[in-house]
Amino acid sequence: MALKADIKILVVDDMSTMRKIIKNMLTQIGFTNISEADDGATAWPMIESAIKEGRPYEFIVSDWNMPQMSGLDLLKNVRSTAGLEKLPFLMITAEAEQGNVVIAVKAGVSNFIVKPFSAQVLKEKIDKIFK
């Protein structure tokens, strides 16, 4: 793996099983420093605290549909924060509609993945983001 194994990753999903699946896949790819949040509303203060502590997250993997703060709103918060304009942000969604891709791209998403997906597809998306 060309990327550092210990880059600081935040996985955001309201479904605990999906968080576990994504964490398993990231571990399988070779990553070792993975935190998780159960909603965009939980993730955002974690992202802010990490900046204050001087150890910001280096990669966000977020679900789109979450009850309190959606992945799209989390992405908009990230992109409107100084220093996070280029933070790699991978959006995951169950809805395979083309319209969603356009909305996410306009909001500045780094890449987009539609469920269901394999560890291989996740790795390919990550490789494209960090190339």
């Binding site: 479904m15 099983t17 999906m18 969604t93 169950a94 809805e95 395979a96 509609e97 083309q98 539609v114 469920k115 269901p116």
Partner: peptide, 14 residues
């Protein structure tokens, strides 16, 4: 199970 039906529905929706 909820995640499975969510993915099936999301795919079928397209």
């Amino acid at each position: 199970g909820g995640e499975i039906v969510n993915m099936i529905m999301g795919n079928a929706k397209r």
